[in-house]
Design a protein around this nucleic acid. Sequence first.
DNA 1: CTGACATATATTGTATACAGTGTGTCATTA
DNA 2: TAATGACACACTGTATACAATATATGTCAG
Lengths: 239, 239
Amino acid sequence: MSAYDGELVDKIVDALEGAIRNGELLPGKRISELALASTLGVSRGPLREAIRKLEARRLFERTAFHGIRLVDLSIEDLEQLLIVREVLEGAAARAAAENISDKDLKELKRFSDEGVRRKQALTFAPKTPQYGFHHLIARASKNRWLEEMLCKDLYGLLRAYRYSSIDFAHRAKEAREEHHEIVKAIAQHDGDLAEVLMRKHNRNGRINFIKRLKADVAGERETSLRPIFRRNRVSRKPT
Amino acid sequence: MSAYDGELVDKIVDALEGAIRNGELLPGKRISELALASTLGVSRGPLREAIRKLEARRLFERTAFHGIRLVDLSIEDLEQLLIVREVLEGAAARAAAENISDKDLKELKRFSDEGVRRKQALTFAPKTPQYGFHHLIARASKNRWLEEMLCKDLYGLLRAYRYSSIDFAHRAKEAREEHHEIVKAIAQHDGDLAEVLMRKHNRNGRINFIKRLKADVAGERETSLRPIFRRNRVSRKPT
DNA sequence: CTGACATATATTGTATACAGTGTGTCATTA
DNA sequence: TAATGACACACTGTATACAATATATGTCAG
């Protein structure tokens, strides 16, 4: 505690997001401030402030005198969220087509040419968000709100529910082709086309994903998105 | 302090939003926590939590050891924000066309038929947000995220910058007709058409507004959106 | 007079303590 | 077994203390 290295609140936010990603926090499960604070090794003050931020981003829900809980999305919630993603990314693709810099375009091309089969091709790479296809486009839009809404709020929310590019794995070839088409439209600075293609791409992924999800749920017994991937429950500390 | 009537943090958030609306807080002006706390008559703890929430909604900006400030948008920022609004409301119109209930449709029709020339026709009526045309459609979308992003985050942000339906006043007839067309499309459950019309409507308003704004700025001396309407600086208390 | 450096002050960041309040649980009782 | 009440627990609100930092101020050398 000698040198000041950024606001503790932000580190707590990061730690909580990491904990969500790693499955250390379970959706719907109540947790007390004090327990969480001692787990993270911080005091209540900064923790509460961090929770308020995440609450505003709809990652946590609070009920007074009761506790904090990670939001638990239904399939319908996720579907609606993906609809929002669809139009926002459509707008991002349009803006990118209009505003992308040569440097960003080069990176985008390189990425979509060769990078697509690497792990980083995942839409929401855990620690390298700047390399995802969709992140690149959001950034290239040069629209501050679009980028923040997508990269910070929306992707964070999706990540909280283990929504990764699971659809990508199941239709990798189509997705790759769609990515290519989108990049081409952006390179041609054709905003209309870029938006249409991006929306179609997202729509395909959404429909595919929801269908698979519903089938999974019907075949098993859970309604939550929780058990899609792995989970554990180790606590972690910041710094 | 005897009876518990809701979380203080939420009341502070409301109070701050009200202060923003009333021009009691000026964009860009730094203010200290302690001063704000004593003005509001609360302690630093809840105030900080409230600030964190508003920070997540991008209404406030903080710099460590320096202070809180209401964000100060440039014209470009506002233009980009209106682009986001455009696609989100387009999606809302589409969803509304697909999901609207008969009751909501009736209200929407009644509103667009007769209510449009009343004060409540303002897109962001200060105290009756549920009656605005765009609010009605956002609600009718039955999409939780869409409604919250629009009504809570985006409209709140626009309101902070005194962006009201100033464009509406300057093209009331066109806007009224556009509203009518949109309602008609929704009534016919034509999602495609509803989205196209809503986007066009917003686009018209945006272009008109930005043009006027730039002309205003060129003719005067301010770059901030602040002086568009009135302002004062009376402090206020919650409860 | 100007610039760099050191100190002072104000403000923020964090931790802890305590009183008040609501909720859920559990035992008691009809 | 179901309803009622008491209790424990968790959370809320607030205050205070101290540490860390940035800005402002002032001093001194050139």
